[in-house]
Design a protein around this nucleic acid. Structure first.
Length: 124
DNA sequence: ACCTTGACGGTTC
DNA sequence: GGAACCGCCAAGG
């Protein structure tokens, strides 16, 4: 883990990134859902901000599956047609996630972790 | 220490 | 559906 990524420097970002890493491939989670699981209820915006702070190049794609996080409406939160929008859409589809008219069926694809899974994995 | 910025969310109309 | 409003608050300037 990079030096800057620790509880002393960025406690919340670290918690958020760690939680996002638990989303299994082929599933998605909402910003608010991640915030809750990370112990930061009601702070969905902070999740978006934290993901935006993950370095653009290098380990971003490999370590933190940022693209598996979408908003509570089941939509990608980047402006439709933007580079990031297309990138995220592509990555999601590569995991067999179905996107119809820019929307994903949360009923079908939302990650539903059980409590023990979370408690076992997170270290805070 | 003050002000602005967010990849949000729920409530309401 | 969708648009406007408002609460949220760490981070960075």
């Amino acid at each position: 883990m990079p030096k800057a990524v620790n509880q002393t420097v960025m406690p919340h970002y670290a918690q958020i990134w760690q939680t996002v890493q638990l989303i299994p491939q082929g599933k998605v989670a909402c910003y608010g859902q991640i915030a809750d699981l990370a112990g930061l209820p009601g702070r969905a915006r902070l999740v978006g901000k934290a993901l935006g702070k993950v370095p653009e190049s290098g380990w971003r794609n490999k370590v933190v599956p940022w693209y598996r996080v979408i908003n509570s409406q089941g939509k990608i939160s980047f402006p439709a047609g933007s580079d990031y929008f297309e990138k995220q859409k592509q990555l999601l589809q590569s995991e067999q996630i179905v996107i119809i008219g820019s929307k994903i069926k949360l009923k079908e694809f939302q990650w539903q972790p059980d409590l023990s899974e979370i408690l076992f994995s997170l270290e805070f």
